[in-house]
Design a protein around this nucleic acid. Structure first.
Lengths: 139, 139
DNA sequence: GTCGTTAAAAATAATCGTTATTTATAAATA
DNA sequence: TATTTATAAATAACGATTATTTTTAACGAC
């Protein structure tokens, strides 16, 4: 990931390293604000705009995928930067990866039916997680 | 749809009727701005906030679904207000319905595996439509 | 149909996430 | 170490959406 930046002649700065590290290691789906708070810890003078720019840079070179949820805002994943299904709890807003069947076959079928060149897809399931189901019953 | 509003004791205003009509009849995926422009035609004094409020009202009572695309902004569908896959051309931004396989089985599988209560899902394919593929070759 | 009540519309201001701009800093290379 | 130049910092600007206040008109009772 660092090498990819170098190869493309982007400079390796501490701020970029910090953002990159957080996105690559996090198993969750941090927002820009989340990343900002973590980076701020080590680099207190960091500006929010820098996080935006770095995240967008990583997005453009394909090392990070952006997921926009109207309910919870934009989230980023540098850990598995390729299409895969998600499972979102609409109560506690937790986002999980889900490993149910892949859609390559469906993509190909769609491509041949419609003539579209399919480049990407996105599959999300929304529901209530077991924990929130229990909370609801108690209240 | 009008009856649903009446039943819930919402007033039937010309502006609401206009928004409702557009969303129920449009086969595409209009944005708030699109709806506004069309309503403005018949009701030149209409305020944009009214469109926002009406669309959100319809969304809340389940007569319209909101689709947020980071590339093309929020779009609304009052024609088929239930989950179904979409096919989006990333060049010309056209949004189509696609009728490839349904995901009920997958939903159920996921529910029993994870304990989540699945309420909704969303499946979108992104690609280049045949028309835009031809344009690209020409240019 | 008229009146009175009150929800909804209009007009406008405010908010929030994101992006653009300007100036200052520091990474890369010689 | 000095020079060049991309990047960071700070701040302003922007655009989509929402909140606020005032005005209008939908609905129900008479």
């Amino acid at each position: 990931m660092i090498n990819k930046l170098k190869d493309l002649d982007f400079r390796i700065t501490p701020q970029r390293l910090a953002v990159l590290k957080i996105l690559a290691e996090s198993t969750g789906y941090p927002s820009v604000e989340d990343v900002f708070k973590q980076v701020e810890h080590n680099f207190p003078t960091t500006s929010l705009a820098t996080i935006y720019k770095t995240v967008n840079l990583l997005k453009e070179i394909g090392e990070v995928v952006e997921l926009d949820f109207s309910e919870v805002g934009n989230r980023y994943d540098g850990n598995r930067p390729y299409p895969h299904p998600h499972l979102i709890c609409t109560k506690c807003k937790t986002i999980m990866d889900s490993d149910v069947g892949n859609l390559e076959d469906l993509s190909k079928e769609l491509a041949s039916k419609t003539g579209y060149e399919i480049l990407n897809h996105r599959l999300d399931f929304f529901g209530i997680c077991p924990h929130c189901q229990r909370s609801a019953k108690r209240s």
